[in-house]
Design a protein around this nucleic acid. Sequence first.
RNA 1: GCCGCUGUGGCUUAGCUUGGUAAAGCGGCUGAUUCGUAAUCAGCAGAUCAUGGGUUCGAAUCCCAUCAGCGGCUCCA
Length: 639
Amino acid sequence: MQLLLIHSDYIEYETKKRTPVAEEIESSMKRGCMEDALTAFIAVESYDEADPDDAVKNAATEIRKTAGQVKAGRVMLYPYAHLSSELSKPAVAVDVLKKLEETLSSDYEVKRAPFGWYKAFKISCKGHPLSELSRTLRTGKDVGSEGNKKDVVKEGVEDVGKGAEVVSEALKSEEKAVSHWHILTPDGELLPAEAFDFSEHTDLKRFVDYEISKSRAVDRIPPHVELMKRLEIADYEPGSDSGNMRFYPKGTLMKRLLEEYVIDTVSKRGAVEVETPVMYDMNHPTLKKYLDRFPARQYSIESDKRSFFLRFAACFGQFLMNRDMTISHRNLPLKMVEMTRYSFRREQHGELVGLRRLRAFTMPDMHTLCGAMDSAITEFKNQYVMCMDVLADIGLDRDYEVAIRFTRDFYTDNQEFITELVKTVDKPVLIELWDSRFFYFVIKFEFNYIDTMNKASALSTVQIDVENAERYGIEYTNKNGDQIRPTILHCSPSGAIERCIYALLEKAHLTSEAGGVPTLPTWLAPTQIRLIPIADRHIKYAEGIARAMPGVRVDIDNRDETVGKRIRAAGREWIPYVVVIGDKEVENGVLSITIRAESVKVEETAPKLHERITSETAGMPYRQINLPMMLSQRAIFFG
RNA sequence: GCCGCUGUGGCUUAGCUUGGUAAAGCGGCUGAUUCGUAAUCAGCAGAUCAUGGGUUCGAAUCCCAUCAGCGGCUCCA
């Protein structure tokens, strides 16, 4: 049996039309209503046929328990076929419902909506944490042993009429404002999307298709999934919830480098780093309002008698911190950043693929408090440019399509500013124009990576928030001593770190499809130099070379394998510099180096090679190798 | 969340239609080999065939459920 229990201010229904399985009812049952009732939507299932009385008993227990918790004295039993795809025979269902009504009526005021009728109904859910509960009840122990289950015919259709309405905040926010789609060119020409000539902008075309027509023709596993495993970067973790990944040492190193890079970058531009909790009180007045809009998207945690949700960004913690701060106009723009490890979003199952979209992910989240809109716009521009630089440094220079989304009012006031943004990236961008504001921001942009499967994933983004300063009570003091609400910018300079890795892998795959050599940026390569000593007697010399390479990740393949095989292994790991060391090198002090990116072999001294790599990775973070230097000592994480 | 496909040693896969001792390559271990740029040779170990139930004398194979992955739909602050 499936139960959906709603603690409601009121529930009312009216029968509209009978279905073939309708029970005969008296006119008094044709309509009904009940105030302050626990409404139990019920689907009796084929499993219950084995022991209907037990099903009644279990359901009664469950309803009593919940009614006790929410202190409800009235119960509405409401047959609802849509809760299950394994419905019982109608006769059994009617029998169970009637017995349930009888059982409960000793303690509660009970009403029962008729079975097998199309009904219009209205319900108002109280909305407190216990007000919505669902339960799956299974009778007996030998569940599933009846052989006739598959033969059950779904004819027990009770349905709701067209007047059905569930009043809830979540649903209200589903309303969509109208979007208008355009392309804005660097010359300042604004065209409806369908009028634009995409022939020289195929990636933009794929992006626009994804956004507007939602074309999703796909027939393959995303290429990065195999790569993330084979390169020992990351993998699924069946012991956790889906979308929560494990990261192997190489992947962890890459993540740390990216994280460090982003934090360094924003710090240089004046951001201060903070740390805030990962979970928040579900019933905190400020947070609740915000949360109510998307109740199904959170992970929730019950602890003692309180409910918490896991953050989906750093907004909560930072805004709560901002509210308690004393801020002067002299402090603006005031930037705070956190590398959220993790942010949590319960994305739908079908969306979770590899590293593209996760339920637990690492995201830099920066918030900037600005004064009036003009200073917010100046800051927005700065951060837009910074995001371009960040993606370029990460290795995704111009590998993205731009979307800028704003309200019509904002556009009217700031047309020139938006054209300037487009000029800055110097390529046409997708414009989404809303007639009215229905999010907390008036403008946002994203840089989107478009993969081989034509899926778009947002990387960098900045938004101008005109709502949350008010909601959270954030203020600064202006020159005249007045308390003023700031305008707030939300910025994730790189987007989710895992997603950057996804984009780098997808890009590398694209390169190899096109006949090139797939690579990672040298500053991110888990091993930057692989030394291959030809015989055991060359290992000592190789160790000396490794010691002479400070600030570079070097390892030594000292395994008892042929040179050919070790060369191949280095290639499969995408190691940018591979050095073979034999008698010749030991004698003349020159190294034989294969440069992966250029597919060439060069002869160079160790200091020269060192200088080559340090200049190639200049300005980017360095961390030491995250595995034993000797390959013979390494365990295998995958494969 | 819904619909469909898939799940076999650490990895990649054969076997499943038509039920009857689970097969191979890679990887691992042991030994030989000390090697000059994309897979050295030989031997050994390693699998409750995703999990739970059912049908059957007998299930990797047929049926049901669950879990996970993938694809589609839906959704996306």
